[in-house]
Design a protein around this nucleic acid. Structure first.
Lengths: 362, 362
DNA sequence: CTGTTAGCGCCTTCAA
DNA sequence: TTGAAGGCGCTAACAG
């Protein structure tokens, strides 16, 4: 009883404590369930039942009304921390990623994840390891300490990974990567089908012969390149009956692509079409083609992957196979919080083609 | 007492409850302070004091040793939710932004904020409103419910804003925006000085006459453009003794810039140097200059703002004034959590010049 | 130097 | 139909 009174004294005295001499901060100004119950003239139990819409307990209409009214007038919002402690659920999902800052790929995943989380009343807690294993371990511990309801483990580059030890036996979904042993559910782009779609974009415009791929790059853990290439080869053969004309290796960046393509064109190569494994490679290729006096798409058609902003900035705009980052993030959240996450499940999200003006119709 | 025993029974039965037939999840498998105290043979108080390094209470070395040992062997980690409830601090900072997904600007801010938060043992909780006021209100409530220790309110575009009502009287720092009435501490880039630096990059290379600005665009709440322009004008005049030759208005995107510059060049305009108000404008300008047979930097020098990846992709690479996004995020977190946040404080972070090959040395 | 105790705000079993 | 009471895991008076 005395406890109740003292609470009240504290609770209502919205003590404005100034931080230094600037910003003022309300502490304990929020109404608690006890306050609501008191104002409504019922017990906390009753208030709790009403506010949680528990129909199994029959509450008189009158009591229900009074509680709801009190809650509104007091601006009552349940204290999540108390709830967390009580229920051991926090309505948050953690997202641990190696790189958040690089490119707006990561941010699109975040955006999709954030939105999906919000629709199920969860908030996103993020951490960036910057590729540092110690930081990663620390972040994992930090999140588990906070009892996030699940963790998304994401990588910037689609890759094959080993689940960090700290995450084992926890609710985890991999985002943009897969576990070596397929022991963890994962959401990745369907790169092989993406490759097919890139090739199909050329076939549909009447291309077939003289199609070259630019950007093969042997990185052991990167999955996108080989998968895209396989899809391209397969589609060209199965749907066009032609063999891929060749592959020009280069790193996935503008300058290396520019140099590789320039050198190649200098040898007299005259491709009919290029499939660049990402938009930056395509940009380098554009520059090299321009220097060689070749026009896109009149002389050479180009398709690429990523459908990043860059694709729309180039002139002519690139036809590019999009990586559905936002969708990946959203799907991963939904999967993480769904009831039937199965260990081996790997969801492959389709990669839509974004058409530009870089493919000539023959 | 019975409570203690029953706790123990629950606590140690690391009940592995499988989710569907896949992922297994440990519930309550973690050791609690009670467990540690019991194993060490002391009271929870003692254990708490030891683990929190509270020197004001003198604990025997022996007891201290045993507690620490027990904590290690049990892998004890304090339950943050209990701590949150008890201390009304959560060691989290919230970040509410209008757009997270657009460009990698936002993600750089996130990255900087995340890293800074980590150094002070805080985790970042994020929310994206997508420009929707209702979503924003909801996110604010959600974060306050969780008692984040402070909130960063960020905008994608540097702008002047009104603090959302729900944030008033809370610990807030504005990120990349300022309050109309300067009533809230804020961290923004020093755009005027950035403008000076852009102009200085030209002056130092011997330029002065025939400098045009591309990209003036009258958006009432956007601060960057006018500030950059003012800095450019001021520096040109004060340090170079010349008047800015002119301003070519256009939207801040590649295609509009391409069109505006093309049309302008078609009228016979022959600028000596262009200051493009962002990198995308510069890209459009490059394309237009190229079409007109003008070379960068031989015929026209170009400097711009943002120092985005794009600046390094262009050929020649752009000399561009960087927006220190990561630094903004980091500073904002530090400011938010520092003890002396003053209402009116506006921290202006310097914008470093990133040199490329787009300025000819005269 | 160490243990007992009373909550933080909430949910929920049990009894009335 | 409602209320009292216990406890989630932790900290901090206050006793001993």
């Amino acid at each position: 009883m005395s406890g109740r009174f003292s609470r009240e004294a504290i609770s209502r005295s919205s003590c404005e404590c100034p931080i230094s001499e600037g910003v003022a901060v309300h502490r304990r100004a929020r109404a608690t369930l006890v306050d609501v119950a008191r104002v409504a003239g019922v017990s906390t139990t009753t208030a709790s039942y009403v506010l949680n819409d528990r129909n199994d307990m029959r509450i008189s209409d009158e009591a229900g009304r009074r509680v709801r009214e009190a809650a509104v007038t007091l601006g009552y919002r349940p204290n999540r921390n108390a709830l967390n402690l009580r229920t051991a659920r926090t309505m948050t999902v953690g997202l641990i990623s190696d790189y958040l800052a690089s490119g707006h790929f990561a941010s699109r995943m975040l955006s999709g994840a954030s939105a999906a989380a919000r629709t199920i009343d969860h908030l996103l807690v993020i951490g960036e390891s910057e590729g540092d294993a110690d930081v990663e371990t620390e972040l994992i511990a930090e999140m588990l300490d906070r009892e996030v309801d699940g963790i998304l483990y994401a990588t910037l580059v689609t890759s094959r990974i080993t689940l960090p030890a700290g995450l084992r036996d926890h609710r985890v979904v991999l985002l943009n990567c897969v576990a070596e042993d397929h022991s963890v559910p994962a959401v990745v782009p369907d790169e092989v089908d993406g490759g097919r779609r890139a090739a199909r974009a050329l076939l549909e415009a009447g291309h077939g012969d003289g199609v070259f791929v630019v950007g093969e790059e042997p990185e052991p853990d990167a999955l996108a390149g080989p998968a895209r290439l396989a899809g391209i080869r397969e589609c060209l053969m199965q749907e066009g009956g032609v063999e891929l004309a060749g592959v020009l290796p280069c790193a996935w960046a503008v300058v290396p692509a520019f140099e590789a393509v320039s050198k190649w064109l200098a040898t007299g190569a005259r491709p009919a079409a290029l499939v660049c494994l990402n938009d930056r490679i395509a940009m380098g290729a554009y520059q090299a083609l321009d220097d060689a006096g070749l026009h896109v798409p009149a002389d050479v058609s180009v398709v690429s992957f990523d459908a990043s902003e860059l694709a729309s900035w180039l002139n002519p705009a690139l036809t590019s196979v999009a990586v559905p980052y936002a969708e990946l993030g959203a799907q991963a959240v939904r999967m993480l919080m769904s009831d039937d996450v199965r260990a081996g499940t790997v969801v492959e999200v389709p990669m839509p083609v974004q058409h530009g003006g870089s493919v000539a119709r023959l």
